[in-house]
Design a protein around this nucleic acid. Sequence first.
DNA 1: AAAATACTTAAGCAAGTCCTTGACAATTGA
DNA 2: TCAATTGTCAAGGACTTGCTTAAGTATTTT
Lengths: 111, 111
Amino acid sequence: MLNYQLDRTFAALADPTRRAMVERLVQGPATVSELAKPLPMSLPAAMLHLKVLEECGLVTSEKTGRVRTCRIDPLVLSQAEKWVGERRQMWERSLDRLGAFLDQTKPEDQS
Amino acid sequence: MLNYQLDRTFAALADPTRRAMVERLVQGPATVSELAKPLPMSLPAAMLHLKVLEECGLVTSEKTGRVRTCRIDPLVLSQAEKWVGERRQMWERSLDRLGAFLDQTKPEDQS
DNA sequence: AAAATACTTAAGCAAGTCCTTGACAATTGA
DNA sequence: TCAATTGTCAAGGACTTGCTTAAGTATTTT
């Protein structure tokens, strides 16, 4: 995943309005109005949030007639998950190496 | 995890400078200067990024003498990972339900 | 055709982010 | 003690974000 897309994805997830949209969309597709209705803001404001979600690839949409239907793309979601998970694993491996080092330098702790 | 802390955590991870700091810190603790040295910016600018990482809890630090040592806190990292992973799972379950629904309404596809 | 629905665009404003430089501790080494 | 090292604070400027209202377009419904 390109660095720039990671920037955009994490920035998109940093806003509670956009996370609420994601929460809605993981349950299935929704129209722009359905996404905007529960939000405490104007429709144009909600569309700007939607645009952010589309630009990072978290959401795709298609318009038929006058209705735009939005759905989530789980690939980008799992790429963000992967970045975080990999770093957590790296930290755990560092701890393991430190433990091994301590075991080696303090062999009296072994049976 | 509080919504506000998720905001701060994702916003922190949305910046490549701060992700670079995280990449460094998963390999073990580092001082402020060590974190700032590879970055194309002034030390005060790097410290602002560090402050963002501390405010969301991704990084903790302690000062002994004139040196501040920073280390990562994997808990906040795994909480962010958890939020994303749970939503991906919810989406997968929605797909499963849709599949089950289609199987039910088109029983001729079954043997 | 007229009215209602669903979405889109544009202008503009308040607040936040990210960086700079310059000045200022506090600690350690010569 | 003087100087170098390591970190911190403050003011300010360029840019981005998140929202508003007002005015549109395109598509259905009556």
